[in-house]
């Protein structure tokens, strides 16, 4: 069972990196952006299968920080600085959401 999981994972990673870096002909920055988008897909896997609520909260929090890096790369690629603003606001809101959700998970009210 474990060997099966390992084989599937390694095949998926190898296929992704091969297609991204050798077949896809975009600029280097776009290839790097693709790696971050692939990481976000893996985070979404954890959101779907996560056995407890805490796993899902952690995943959404991590997604916010990843998006901050993604918007930084986008702003370099398009040479426009307002993408970083979007990322900052996204990370800020995801922090607030994480704190509120963990308070509710702990069994307290928001004005406690």
């Amino acid at each position: 069972m474990k060997i099966l999981k390992w084989t599937i994972g390694l095949i998926i990673f190898a296929a992704f990196f091969y297609f991204n870096f050798f077949i896809y002909q975009g600029a280097l920055m776009l290839q790097l952006i693709n790696v971050i988008l692939f990481s976000s897909l893996m985070v979404l896997i954890r959101v779907i299968i996560g056995p407890t609520a805490a796993d899902r909260i952690v995943s959404v929090d991590i997604l916010g920080v990843l998006i901050l890096g993604l918007t930084a790369l986008l702003s370099i690629y398009y040479n426009e600085s307002f993408f970083i603003d979007v990322g900052l606001i996204w990370a800020l809101l995801s922090l607030i959401a994480t704190l509120a959700f963990s308070k509710i998970l702990e069994g307290r009210q928001l004005d406690d």
Binding site: D61, T98, L99, S102, K103
Partner: peptide, 16 residues
């Protein structure tokens, strides 16, 4: 922000 969020989630997970 990241350590603060991690601390909050860890404590909430242990208390629930």
């Amino acid at each position: 922000a990241a350590p603060t969020a991690a601390h909050a989630v860890a404590r909430a997970a242990h208390r629930s």
